[in-house]
Amino acid sequence: MLDSSGGSSDPILTVDKVAKSFGGVQAVKEVSLQVERGSIFSIIGPNGAGKTSLVNMISGFYKADQGSIKFDGTELIGRSPSGIAELGIARTFQNIALFRGLTVLDNLMLGRHVRMKSSVMSCFMWWGAAQKEEIHHRKRAEEIIDFLRISDLRRANTGELAYGLQKRVELGRALALDPTLLLLDEPMAGMNSEEKEDMVRYVLDVNAEFGTTIILIEHDMGVVMDISDHIVVLDQGEKISDGTPDQVKADPAVIRAYLGASHLQG
């Protein structure tokens, strides 16, 4: 097993001996890792390895049984999911979780909710503070709509969109928060190669243009090896490897875990 590849100088996220079990199933077993600020950090592993569970603990959706998760020095364990979002952590879901009855625009504006502060009173009054704030944030939402090239879908209900577009809108909703840390759980799953290429581009652009740190769960090894700065491999809840793409690719533990599974081709 390889260890963290040399001096992590500026970690944005530090996961320390985090574990989670469901009944008898130990989904995550004392996993530790460090995510470098501004990096693209991938978590890979076979189905059921505990990748989603780990991300769920970071976003506060699951509460870790033990350990610590520090985001810029702030302990995340024990915070509510909305409290974690307020810190600037956004995510997408493996199974899309858009507001299906609402438009693309409304979904994105909801993504900006934590950045908006109008009080109940000023919302009732609207003219003045609330309207001004709405216009201000609407501009940012429109920028993201342009960035993701979904201008013509602005008024479409997200439930009516094709699968690949729903994934893109969900990315948009996460981006609308202006996150410093973005968690993407299989953003390319079920996409055709063209859609996948688009999504890879967006991920790279977000990372480069906005400086957003990205934690990516993805099965496509070609993509993962291509775009990741750092990779962690989970297997049956345990971290079995941790390093750069080249280090992970050459790690015997990884090869053993994937033996028989045809995932690792890159």
Binding site: S80, S82, F93, A97, L110, V114
Partner: peptide, 10 residues
Amino acid sequence: DQDIAAEIIG
């Protein structure tokens, strides 16, 4: 519409 997603986005 989606209370889980609502909580996650803050």
